[in-house]
Amino acid sequence: MSFESELSNGNFCIPKCTNCTKIVWPPSEFCDGCYGIVSLLKGNFEGEIIEFSQDSHGYFCMVEFVEKIRIMARKKEQPQIGQIVKISTCGIKDESYFFEII
């Protein structure tokens, strides 16, 4: 399964090189360091809110996971800088990834 097919099923995976163990972000079939094949780590990963703002639909946050994997994610409740969060919903809609955190 590719990162995107996992994401379409609502699973956020962390791509990691099978050769040099580097975390590869954004997701890619090949490692950006050694061009080795990338595998997907599954789990209920914790991230940290490093910045946020809001629009008429709620808050949007920059969240950092292990080894500087960063995403922009929606959050319903008031975020705090440094808050530890998990992805509650994710997927692909209109060819764009989307993430929601709690």
Partner: peptide, 22 residues
């Protein structure tokens, strides 16, 4: 379009808001 790490927040107003907030 390529920058999927921005999730659903691809319009420049979103990076500008994050920069401004920071």
């Amino acid at each position: 379009d390529w920058d999927n790490s921005r999730g659903a927040f691809k319009h420049p107003i979103f990076w500008a808001s994050i920069f401004t907030s920071a």
